[in-house]
Simulated scan of single mutants.
Amino acid sequence: MTRYAVYAVPGLLGESDDPIAAGLRSTVEAWYARPEFHDLTVDARRYGFHATLKAPFRLAGGRTEADLRAAADAFAASHHCVLLPALRPANLGRFRALLPHGDDSAIRMLADEAVRSFDVFRAELDDADIRRRRPETLSARERVLFEQWGYPYVFEEFRFHLTLTDPIPPARESEIDSAIAAHFAKDGHGCDVLLRSIALFIEREPGAPFEVLSAHPLATPSADADLQETA
């Protein structure tokens, strides 16, 4: 069964639009490609370089892919580009990810609005969806959010992150942390990055890699100037 997701992907529009974001994306993709760590980037590579705004979902009855793309166009056109402050590798539980360090209120607001706006396209959770999320491992609040919105890490539980690894065994933490620090020493370490678009991703069948379906530019060029004045 096909699933869709709404993701934030810095650098998706290309180097001509933003060489810093495009360079960061290239650096992360080079990290995923390192064969010595393939056993710890299986899911990271399958989902691709992204941060979740609206988690993967099946289309609700009566909704089409064309409807979803039109909604993504409208959503993006009504929201400005978002500054992601000081992105750098950090721990996220047993995962490693690029996290913003600074005021992340703008990206949190964008994510909150994406969760609400795109929920009309989400089919109700089925048994497979519920089993995949392992609700018995969730807190009481996460369980409520999962049942209402199809994903437990939304609103106050949301934390913007660009995933670099799958869960890391404790015995390999030092090795992986050193490798990540060296890999991102020049690019993608402490950069302010402008998110210029949202993207629709598609999983064409269960277990297939997520692919970029379409990119939807945020705001108008004037938003860049506004962000620079307030940065």
Rank of each mutant, 00 (worst) to 15 (best):
M1T: 09
Y4E: 03
A5Q: 09
Y7F: 10
S16D: 06
D17C: 07
A22V: 00
L24P: 15
V28C: 04
Y32P: 14
R34K: 11
P35K: 04
E36W: 09
H38S: 10
L40N: 06
T41E: 01
A44E: 05
F49G: 01
K54W: 13
R58M: 06
R58G: 08
L59K: 08
E65K: 13
L68R: 14
L68C: 12
L68V: 15
A70T: 15
A70M: 14
A72T: 09
F75S: 14
S78Q: 13
H80D: 08
P85I: 00
R88D: 02
R88S: 12
P89G: 03
N91E: 03
R96N: 11
R96D: 02
L99G: 11
G102H: 01
D103C: 07
E113N: 09
R116M: 12
S117P: 00
F118I: 03
F121E: 14
E124G: 14
D126W: 05
R134C: 13
S139K: 06
R141C: 14
R143H: 12
G150L: 06
Y151R: 05
E157F: 12
F160H: 08
H161T: 07
H161P: 15
H161F: 03
L162R: 03
T165P: 09
D166F: 02
D166H: 11
P167L: 06
P169D: 02
I176C: 12
D177A: 14
D177R: 15
F184C: 05
A185C: 12
G188W: 13
H189P: 00
G190R: 04
I198C: 09
I198F: 14
A199M: 07
I202R: 10
E203P: 03
P206R: 03
G207R: 02
P209N: 01
V212T: 06
L213N: 10
S214D: 11
T220H: 15
A223H: 09
D224M: 04
D226R: 15
Q228L: 10
E229L: 14
E229F: 10
